[in-house]
Write a protein that binds this DNA or RNA. Structure first.
Length: 618
DNA sequence: TTAGGGTTAG
């Protein structure tokens, strides 16, 4: 062997070694170790090697440091398809799908031909952006390049179409694929999130399933609001010998939180400890979230304090818990602690913080946070931040300021921000502004039932029975349906669901008898049904009816009958708690001597001894 | 250098 061949071989060997120590860092997400290797590479002059450079780009991108990836990428004298693909995949991973597509465009302009891995990355980018049009173009290119028979590319195509909502296209690709694996089938199931019947049809046909497939089905039920079915499926998967993993637990905890199933959640927590998943940051954050949403901030803090590592999501979750429970001052205090510990807040952190201020009526503090977000943390306000600010100002009665803020928004105001303002009009009885805003929302979303409900509440509260009836009539004529109210309560480790005017529950006679009994005591204690939102006068019989037909009242009565005296009742309602329910629950908490916690659409109401934690009814 | 599922808010 000549000396030049010898030298070449030795360079190859060293380059390969560097590639392996970098690959390991990338796999472990060990950014600091990766940086050390990078330093050595600079010293030994290997940085510009295409193979080593591509590995470095990949390592930085995988560790989430896209800036460093760019630094290496820009320094490289030559780049191949692997270098470009690593950059594309890195941007997809960081949630920058648009940038990934731009890189793909640039790569082609520079004459580099994509391979199957590039296509997988680009399709992922399209899927993350739900960019069906761009996805179709890429599909066309894939067919032209002859990559459509590749199972990886095929899977990504199915995934892209499914995520873009075109199940027809997904099935077309699926049927043409020469071979399918468990990933192909699972992508189809995931495409049916929200359409659980079709997901089941695919699941039942599958020749092979793994834990990801089961997780997808459990998730499908959670997304459809079928928490109990999700938990049943979790049992079934274990009976069939499939070991749950961290994702399973995250999804199952989500199901528990959605139903406020605290006891079930505690069982899952024990299971997590037995499996050794409790030190995982994803699982830990989900546990914090579950306990907070199930009404136990004590447990949420206990998990939080024991976690070996906490990231921005963990902190944001606990701040969100504080917000939900009305602990505004606490949220602000812990936000400072978070920053002191060197955790960089993100846009979601500020949404939680602003919502904490809003729920606690801390207007000045909220405005300060908002200003600091833009100035000190360089986070530009998104639609969600504007919604929080409008909510904060509006609840506190600064309606004009809130409306000015909407008008001054740099982007087009969306329905949520108008709804926040409309809710504020309801709290403060501002009829003129409410009518204007309702009109605005209905132009954008003619089927928005909540607008009709809010407007009718505002008219009723102002004593305008005629307009109240008119708006109700308009809603009916337009065929706009109100969202039905649901309430969940967990008693003796079992979750029970109630709906408005429930007739089906086997214990209904006892529930009605309990409400009738309470009605008498409440009347004596001074409770009168809230007539504000009732169009006609209420006689004795109707008084009982108004006490009985709301789902949360049925759930409370059920809880009182079936749980041990003195225990706290935890209730979850899918809609806002109505004013009459709010008042009657105060009375019930006093008469029954129970603490009742109600989690409605966005916050907890904590009823104790005839009082509620809300400063006002919101 | 290569695929599929998950945490926070609105």
């Amino acid at each position: 062997m000549s000396s030049s061949q010898d030298k070449h071989l030795s360079i190859m060997r060293v380059s390969h070694q560097y590639h392996l120590m970098i690959k390991a860092c990338a796999g472990l997400g060990a950014l600091e170790d990766g940086r050390l290797v990078h330093k050595q590479l600079i010293q030994s002059g290997f940085e510009s090697d295409v193979f080593v450079g591509s590995s470095l780009v990949d390592m930085y991108a995988k560790c989430g440091s896209i800036k460093d990836a760019w630094r290496v990428f820009n320094k490289m004298s030559s780049r191949n398809v692997v270098t470009w693909t690593a950059m594309i995949l890195g941007h997809v991973k960081c949630g920058q799908g648009q940038k990934a597509l731009e890189l793909y465009e640039q790569m082609q302009q520079e004459g580099v031909q994509p391979d199957s891995v590039t296509f997988v990355g680009v399709l992922n980018a399209c899927a993350s952006l739900a960019a069906l049009k761009e996805g179709r173009c890429v599909h066309q290119q894939i067919v032209e390049c002859g990559w459509d028979a590749d199972v990886f590319v095929g899977n990504s195509l199915v995934d892209m179409y499914a995520k873009c909502g075109s199940m027809e296209d997904a099935w077309r690709v699926f049927n043409k694929m020469p071979s399918r694996d468990v990933v192909t089938w699972t992508a189809m199931i995931l495409g049916y999130c929200g359409n659980i019947e079709d997901a089941w049809r695919v699941f039942n046909k599958m020749p092979l399933r793994n834990v990801v497939t089961w997780n997808a089905m459990v998730l499908g039920h959670v997304k459809c609001g079928q928490g109990q079915e999700a938990l049943k499926l979790f049992q079934q998967m274990q009976q069939e010998g499939v070991q749950p993993n961290s994702v399973t637990f995250v999804v199952v905890l989500n199901a528990c939180a959605s139903m406020i199933a605290l006891e079930e959640g505690r069982c899952v927590h024990q299971h997590i400890i037995r499996c050794g998943w409790d030190s995982d940051v994803f699982v830990g954050s989900s546990l914090v979230d579950m306990y907070a949403k199930c009404g136990s901030m004590e447990d949420a803090w206990s998990v939080f304090n024991k976690m070996p590592s906490r990231d921005v999501v963990t902190w944001t979750t606990i701040l969100g818990g504080c917000a939900m429970h009305g602990h505004g001052k606490e949220a602000l205090k812990h936000f400072e602690r978070m920053c002191e510990e060197g955790v960089q807040p993100d846009d979601v952190t500020f949404i939680c913080l602003l919502s904490a201020c809003s729920h606690a009526g801390l207007v000045g503090e909220g405005m300060h946070c908002y200003a600091s977000m833009v100035k000190d943390y360089m986070i530009s306000a998104k639609l969600e931040h504007y919604t929080c600010m409008v909510d904060l100002l509006g609840r506190a009665g600064h309606l004009q300021e809130a409306e000015n803020m909407v008008m001054a928004m740099p982007c087009k105001p969306h329905v949520a921000v108008w709804m926040a303002l409309l809710s504020a009009c309801r709290i403060h009885g501002h009829v003129e502004m409410a009518e204007r805003i309702a009109k605005q929302i209905l132009e954008m979303e003619p089927d928005n039932a909540a607008v009709y409900v809010l407007l009718s509440d505002i008219y009723a509260a102002g004593g305008n029975k005629h307009l109240c009836q008119t708006i109700e009539q308009q809603r009916k004529e337009k065929g706009v349906k109100k969202q039905p109210g649901h309430t969940w309560i967990e008693v003796n480790n079992e979750v029970h669901t109630f709906v408005v005017d429930d007739q089906d529950h086997p214990q209904m006679p006892e529930i009605h008898a309990e409400l009738q009994r309470l009605s008498g005591h409440m009347h004596d204690a001074g409770y009168r049904p809230c007539k504000k939102f009732i169009v006609h006068d209420v006689d004795e019989e109707e008084k009982v009816f108004h006490l009985c037909h709301h789902s949360e009242k049925l759930a409370i009565a059920f809880g009182l009958i079936n749980s041990a005296p003195g225990t706290t009742l935890r209730i979850r309602k899918n809609l806002r708690v109505c004013e009459d329910c709010h008042t009657s629950t105060k009375f019930i908490s006093k008469i029954a001597g129970r603490t009742i916690m109600v989690r409605d659409a966005n916050r907890f109401h904590h009823f104790e001894d005839g009082m509620c934690s809300c400063r006002d009814y919101w």
